[in-house]
Amino acid sequence: MSGLVVVGVDGSDSGLAAAEEAAREARARGAALKVVHAFVWPAMHVPLGPSPLGPPGGGLRNMALRAVAEAVERARTAAPGIEVTHAVVSGEPLTVLEAQSRDAELVVVGSRGMGGFVGLMVGSTAVHLAAHGRCPVLVVRGERRADGPVVVGVDGSPAGEDAVDFAFAEADLRGAPLVALHAWTTWNAPLPAPQGAAVPYANPRGALAAEEERLLSEALAGRRERHPEVAVEHRLVHGATREALIEASRSARLLVVGARGRGGFTGLLLGSVSQALLHHAECPVAVVRGAAGRR
């Protein structure tokens, strides 16, 4: 067995769902699973053990241990036979999971949590990890489906190539078809026309759509040969990218996007489309950042 999948848990239902999904990912990859709980309380200088007036099983440390034990049990039930280790790591959750991502091929988190992730919603935990993690991040949200395709957002950017690689591998692991979705808008505006003349256009009718179809085909080139068992659908959508991907998520088992793509502002680590999907997609979302997709 090689490889490692890491899941961040905190005792919430969302964290337990993430543990189950991470276990299935580990089994499909032939990887080990590590269940991690970020224990923030030592930094707060508060008592960690049980209260003298309370039950011996009380206290913050015991609460953390129970959260991890329950997540390990759920993981082993979801994917019997996988190797599972666990750790309670002192530190702030975002920092802990970012450090864990250095040795992992995938980090899995829930869309929101409690306990060790007190007050942190998807807007902080998942977005931070997607922007700074050293491997792809899978955010478990929406409805889990046993059927339906893996959908990947394709934009033709160099950064997006890693998301395409990851999506093909995921579709292969899951025995799922792949929908490669590219959304585009009519960015070319009519040129000013001389007095009395018809308004000319920057491109002949249909040329822009043909160019976008070519971009989609080129972005997928070579992947079919490496994953011959994956059935691939090209889906070209004339419309806004985030709305098209959210719509596709309603029937998908997994949505894959790059952290940033074509048109992103230099210096931003996570694009607006990726952030929108982390908040609004109706299935689990994997965000692949740069060369992390090849790990």
Rank of each mutant, 00 (worst) to 15 (best):
A22E: 07
Q100C: 14
V164L: 06
V164N: 05
H238A: 14
G175N: 08
A291I: 00
N188Y: 09
Q100A: 15
A75T: 12
E211S: 14
G57T: 15
V84Y: 01
C135E: 08
M121W: 04
N203D: 15
P284T: 10
Q100P: 01
L173V: 05
V72T: 14
A19H: 03
R24D: 10
A221C: 06
R29Y: 00
V89K: 13
A17W: 02
S251N: 11
G54K: 08
G15S: 09
E92S: 12
A244Y: 01
V140A: 03
A183Y: 11
R250Y: 00
V273N: 07
A210L: 09
T125Q: 13
L53N: 12
L138Y: 04
P190A: 03
G264R: 14
V151T: 07
V88Y: 08
R66I: 06
A207M: 09
V199S: 09
E161A: 15
A259N: 09
E282S: 08
L236D: 05
A126H: 08
L60T: 04
F265H: 11
H132C: 01
L255H: 07
A171E: 14
G239S: 10
L270V: 14
A26Q: 08
R253Y: 00
A197P: 02
W184S: 08
R144T: 04
A210G: 11
V256N: 07
A19P: 06
P284W: 05
A281G: 03
D10W: 03
G119F: 00
R224C: 00
A219M: 07
A292G: 05
E211G: 15
V273H: 01
V40C: 04
G3I: 02
A221V: 07
T266M: 13
E282M: 07
V237F: 04
S14M: 03
G15K: 12
A292V: 01
Q275W: 00
G115C: 12
R205F: 02
A193N: 10
L97W: 09
R112M: 04
L60W: 15
V287M: 09
T186M: 12
P136R: 09
R61I: 06
A130N: 13
F265E: 10
M63W: 15
V96D: 13
G206Q: 09
R112I: 01
G3P: 03
A28I: 01
G153C: 04
L270Q: 01
R262P: 00
E70W: 00
V108G: 08
P204I: 01
V96C: 11
V7W: 04
S249P: 08
C283L: 08
